[in-house]
Design a protein around this nucleic acid. Structure first.
Length: 596
DNA sequence: CATGTCACG
DNA sequence: ACGTACGTGACATGA
C-alpha cells in the first residue's frame, strides 16, 4: 500500500483533517508552480514517518468522485498553519513564509527548519544543503527507493499526479530528517541554545528585513550610469590609440597580448598567469596603458555590477530593492547576500561611494547605521586573554596606532597615519592567521622584514601566540573549532595529506572563532533589536546587515533617541559577554553614505 | 562551466 | 620544503 496519499475525495479529507488538527507536530511542504512565481499549487503534510498527504488546490480532471472545494482545502491549510499549538517542520521557512504571506497565511507555532538543523549540526565547507543531499547523509539506507522516485529524472515533470506524489513524499522526508537531526540537537544544550536563541528567532528577522527592502534614488543612479557609459567610451578610444589596435579591454587575455606585442612591455614575465590590479599598478609606472585598463575595469565593475544591476533589481510592486540573505551557507556562521548582493556595495573609492549614496531613506525617515567597532579584534582580546589588548579596549585606545608604535619602535605620539595603516594591516593579518609571505605582500616589504614583524607582534602580545598554539592543537586533535557561543566549525582539511591545504586549514582554524563569534554577536543584536522594534509598534525598520553593521530606517526627528536605544541594545543586551566592552558607532543621514 | 578579476566585511 | 592571509557574490571571457 502506498501511504503517500494524494487527496482526491471527501472521505480522505475528513480523516486527515482530524488527524492534523490533533497533531502537535506536523511537517509541511509547499508545492509552488515552477514556471510561475507566487503560485500555490497545493501543499502536503506528514505527521508520521512513511505517511503523508497532498492537498491539491486545483484538481487534475481525473476524478468525478465527490471532493472538497478549493475553499475548504485552503481554510484547512490556514487553520493548521496558523495554529499556535501545532509545531511546524519545514525545509526552508523563508520561502514558504514568503509564498504563504502572499496568500494571507501567517505561519505560527514553533518552527523547526531542517536546513537550520543541518546548519547547526554540520557546518562544514562545501557541505551541500538541499533535500537530496540531506537525504543522502541522514536517511542513508532508511529510505530505500522512495527518494529515488522524487529526485529521479524529470521525465514526468508535466504529469500533475507525479508532482503531487513528489510533494507528499517530500513532506514525509522532511519529517524523517527532523526526527533524525533534532534529537542530536536537543541532547546537546550548547547546540540547542544556538538553534533556539540564535538561528530560529533569526528566521523571521531576516524575513522582515528582506520584505522591507531599501529605497534607491533611481534618477541619481541612472544618470551616474550614463556618465559611466560615456567614460567607458572615452577610455576605449584612448586605449586603442595607445595600443595602435582595437581590442577588448575587459579580456585579461587580450590585455596581456596587447601589452606584449603592441607595446613590447619587457618586464612582463611571459609565463605570467594573469594581469591583475597589482601587476598593472606596477606597470603603470612605466607605461600609460595599464592605468587605462585599471580604470576601465573599475568603471565596468561599477556600471555592470552596481548601477545597472541595482536598477534592474528594483521590485515593481514595492519600488524597492530586496536582497536574499542566506542563513545556512557560510561555514563560520555569517550571513551571505545575493540577488543582488547588498553586502559588497562599494565604499573604498570616491567613485564607488556614489553607489552608496543612491541608497536612501523613505520620505519621513532617516537612515541610521550602527556598526560594531573592531569587533573581531575585541573577540581576539577576549579569546586570547591578552592583557595588553584588553587594556587597550578598556581604555578606548587606538589599537592600530598602538600596534604600530610597538612594532616600529616609535613613540605613540609620533605615529603617523602611514604607520597606523601598517599597524592596521598587521592587526588584520593576525585575524587571518597571517603568514610572513602574506604580510610581506600586503605591506610590500621583504620576507625577512615580515618575519621580524610577526615575531615582534607575538613578543608584544604573547598570549595571542599562546592562544593560536592552543587552537592549532585543538583543531589537529578534533578537526573543529568553536565560537564563544559554542557554534562548531568543522575543518576536515586539517587532516589532508597535502601540506598546502593543511596550512590553509590552520589559517581557517585561527580565523573562524573570531569571524564566527562576530557573526553570533550581530545575530543576537538583530534579534534583540527586532524584538524592541516590535514593542515599538514597528516605527523603526531594520533594512540590512553587512556583517558588523546594521542599517535602519527611523522616523525623522526622533532619530537621536532611537539611535541611543539601538546602541545600548547592541552593546549591552545581546547576552553574549566579552571581557572587553563592545562599541557601536552610530551614524545618521538621508543616504547610506551620509549615515556612515 | 571554469577561470580571472574585483566589490565588501 | 612547501606556496601563501579569512569569509563571501557577480560579472565577462573563452574553452
Amino acid at each position: 500500500m502506498d501511504s503517500n496519499v494524494i487527496l482526491i475525495d471527501e472521505k480522505t479529507f475528513c480523516s486527515w483533517k482530524i488527524k492534523l488538527e490533533q497533531a502537535s507536530l506536523v511537517a509541511f511542504n509547499i508545492h509552488e508552480f515552477s514556471r510561475k512565481r507566487e503560485k500555490l499549487m497545493g501543499f502536503s503534510f506528514s505527521i508520521k514517518p512513511g505517511e503523508s498527504i497532498y492537498f491539491p488546490l486545483s484538481y487534475p480532471s481525473i476524478s468525478s468522485r465527490e471532493r472538497p472545494t478549493r475553499e475548504e482545502v485552503f481554510s484547512h491549510l490556514k487553520f493548521i498553519l496558523e495554529n499556535e499549538k501545532i509545531s511546524k517542520i519545514c525545509s526552508s521557512f523563508k520561502e514558504s513564509n514568503k509564498l504563504l504571506k502572499y496568500y494571507g497565511i501567517e505561519i505560527k507555532g514553533m518552527i523547526f527548519d531542517i536546513m537550520l538543523e543541518s546548519y547547526v549540526l554540520e557546518s562544514v565547507k562545501n557541505r551541500r544543503r538541499n533535500l537530496k543531499s540531506l537525504v543522502n547523509r541522514w536517511l542513508h539506507g532508511n529510505h530505500a527507493g522512495k527518494e529515488q522516485k522524487v529526485f529521479r529524472g524529470t521525465k514526468n515533470r508535466d504529469c500533475a499526479i507525479e508532482q503531487h506524489r513528489s510533494s507528499a513524499v517530500e513532506s514525509d522526508i522532511i519529517l524523517q530528517l527532523h526526527l533524525k537531526m533534532w534529537p542530536l540537537i536537543a541532547r546537546n544544550s550548547v547546540i540547542k541554545n544556538i538553534y533556539e536563541h540564535i538561528e530560529r528567532p533569526l528566521l523571521k528577522v531576516i524575513f522582515r528585513m528582506e520584505s522591507h527592502g531599501i529605497l534607491i534614488d533611481t534618477h541619481f543612479l541612472s544618470s551616474y550610469s550614463s556618465e559611466l557609459s560615456h567614460r567607458l567610451h572615452q577610455l576605449e578610444k584612448k586605449a586603442y590609440k595607445i595600443a595602435g589596435t582595437s581590442f577588448q579591454l575587459s579580456s585579461p587575455h587580450q590585455v596581456q597580448k596587447v601589452l606584449h606585442h603592441s607595446l613590447r612591455v619587457n618586464n612582463l614575465p611571459s609565463g605570467i598567469p594573469y594581469i591583475n590590479a597589482k601587476v598593472l599598478l606596477e606597470l603603470a609606472e612605466k607605461y600609460s596603458l595599464p592605468k587605462i585598463v585599471l580604470e576601465y575595469r573599475q568603471v565596468t565593475k561599477l556600471k555592470h555590477s552596481y548601477t545597472d544591476k541595482l536598477l534592474h533589481m528594483i521590485n515593481f510592486t514595492s519600488g524597492r530593492l530586496h536582497t536574499s540573505y542566506h542563513q545556512t551557507l557560510t561555514t563560520t556562521g555569517r550571513l551571505s547576500s545575493s540577488q543582488p548582493n547588498l553586502q559588497n556595495i562599494p565604499i573604498r573609492t570616491s567613485e564607488g561611494r556614489k553607489i552608496r549614496q543612491s541608497f536612501i531613506a523613505s520620505s519621513g525617515y532617516d537612515l541610521i547605521t550602527a556598526d560594531y567597532s573592531q569587533i573581531e579584534l575585541r573577540i581576539l582580546a577576549h579569546l586570547s586573554q591578552e592583557k595588553k589588548l584588553i587594556k587597550s579596549f578598556l581604555n578606548h585606545e587606538d589599537l592600530h596606532s598602538i600596534t604600530a608604535s610597538n612594532l616600529f619602535n616609535i613613540a605613540f605620539k609620533k605615529v603617523t597615519p602611514a604607520h597606523r595603516r601598517r599597524g592596521k594591516i598587521i592587526n588584520f593579518g593576525v585575524i587571518y592567521g597571517m603568514s610572513a609571505f602574506g604580510l610581506s605582500q600586503q605591506l610590500n616589504i621583504s620576507l625577512t622584514d615580515a618575519h621580524n614583524y610577526i615575531n615582534l607582534y607575538f613578543k608584544h602580545y604573547p598570549n595571542v601566540l599562546t592562544y593560536m598554539k592552543k587552537i592549532k592543537i585543538q583543531v589537529q586533535k578534533t578537526g573543529y573549532v568553536n565560537t564563544i557561543t559554542g557554534r562548531t566549525i568543522y575543518i576536515p582539511s586539517i587532516f589532508s595529506k597535502n601540506i598546502v591545504r593543511r596550512n590553509a586549514a590552520f589559517r581557517t582554524a585561527i580565523n573562524a572563532p573570531m569571524q564566527g563569534t562576530s557573526a553570533d554577536i550581530i545575530k543576537r543584536a538583530m534579534i534583540v533589536v527586532d524584538q524592541w522594534i516590535t514593542n515599538k509598534n514597528n516605527s523603526v525598520r531594520m533594512l540590512m546587515q553587512v556583517h558588523d553593521e546594521l542599517l535602519f530606517e527611523v522616523p525623522q526627528g526622533a532619530w537621536k533617541e532611537y539611535a541611543h536605544e539601538i546602541r545600548d541594545l547592541m552593546e549591552n543586551h545581546i547576552r553574549i559577554r566579552l571581557n572587553v566592552p563592545l562599541l557601536v558607532n552610530i551614524g545618521k543621514g538621508h543616504n547610506w553614505l551620509q549615515s556612515h
